[in-house]
Amino acid sequence: MSENELRIVVGVDGSPGSRAALRWALRYAEQCGGAVTAVIAWSPPTFTEVAPMPPVLSDEDSVARAEWELRKAVDETRASLETSVPVRQEVARGHAVRALLDCAQDADLLVVGSRGHGGFVGALLGSVSLHCVTHAHCPVVVVRPAAG
């Protein structure tokens, strides 16, 4: 990445909203000559239930799953857009908000989907996108997934 190249960070979790955000970021980067950093976050599971739980993935398995999900989203999206925009892929341990804000600390733009995998269906913004909009040190674009 050159010094003058626009740096765009995009959150990816495999959801339709994050796929839409990745498409938007790649198109924008192509238009302005920028480079994209696609970030996926993972957290070790927390246990709050007393009932027996299914086997838990190890940290290595969790990282491998996150890497696979990120690679799949990036590869499929780049192929569908037929773009050669450089995409750096980053797997971050921790909560998605913290990972995105940390990765976007020196970015020119942060792009997130309006809804991820959690929360209330139909809400205008998810908790991650809302936190990013209110706490990022760079402009934030929130992308809604295509209807249907």
Rank of each mutant, 00 (worst) to 15 (best):
L26W: 03
V128P: 04
G122V: 09
L101R: 02
G118L: 07
G33T: 10
V12D: 02
T37P: 08
L101I: 11
S114G: 08
L70T: 03
A66Q: 00
F47H: 12
V56T: 15
A20T: 06
A20R: 01
G34T: 04
C103D: 10
A136L: 11
M53N: 06
V97R: 12
H131F: 00
V56E: 09
E30N: 13
Q31T: 14
A66S: 10
G94N: 07
L6S: 12
V91P: 01
R98L: 11
V85W: 02
Y28M: 12
E49F: 14
G94I: 07
H117K: 09
L26Q: 10
F120N: 01
D13P: 05
E90I: 08
R115A: 03
A79G: 05
V121G: 12
V39T: 07
H95D: 15
A104N: 08
D102Q: 14
V50K: 00
A51W: 01
P52A: 13
G11A: 03
G126N: 02
S62E: 10
A73N: 07
Q89H: 04
H117W: 13
V91C: 09
K72T: 15
P145F: 08
A92V: 11
G14A: 02
T134W: 04
P44S: 13
I8Q: 05
A104Y: 01
P145V: 02
R7E: 14
D59I: 07
E76P: 05
Q105W: 10
E30L: 13
E30S: 15
R78C: 14
C32F: 15
V142M: 11
G11I: 03
A79E: 14
V140P: 10
A38I: 00
P45L: 00
S2M: 07
H117R: 14
L109D: 04
R115P: 06
D61K: 11
R98N: 12
A20D: 03
H95F: 09
V63E: 13
V10D: 09
A64S: 14
A104R: 01
T46M: 14
A35C: 12
E60N: 10
A123Q: 10
L101N: 05
V142E: 04
E30Q: 14
R27A: 12
G11E: 08
P145E: 13
G17F: 01
A104F: 06
E30T: 09
L22P: 07
P86G: 04
W68F: 11
V56H: 02
R88S: 09
E76K: 04
V56N: 02
S62F: 02
G34Y: 04
V112P: 01
E49L: 15
V97N: 02
H95N: 15
S18N: 05
E49S: 15
Q105G: 12
W42I: 08
P86A: 08
V141W: 06
V36T: 05
A136S: 15
I8P: 06
A79Q: 11
Q105M: 09
R27D: 12
A20L: 05
S129G: 14
V39G: 05
E76M: 05
V133D: 01
L100F: 12
A79C: 04
D75G: 09
A35V: 11
A96W: 03
R23W: 00
P44M: 11
E5Q: 15
E67F: 00
R88W: 08
F47L: 15
R144I: 02
S129R: 09
L130G: 12
A66M: 03
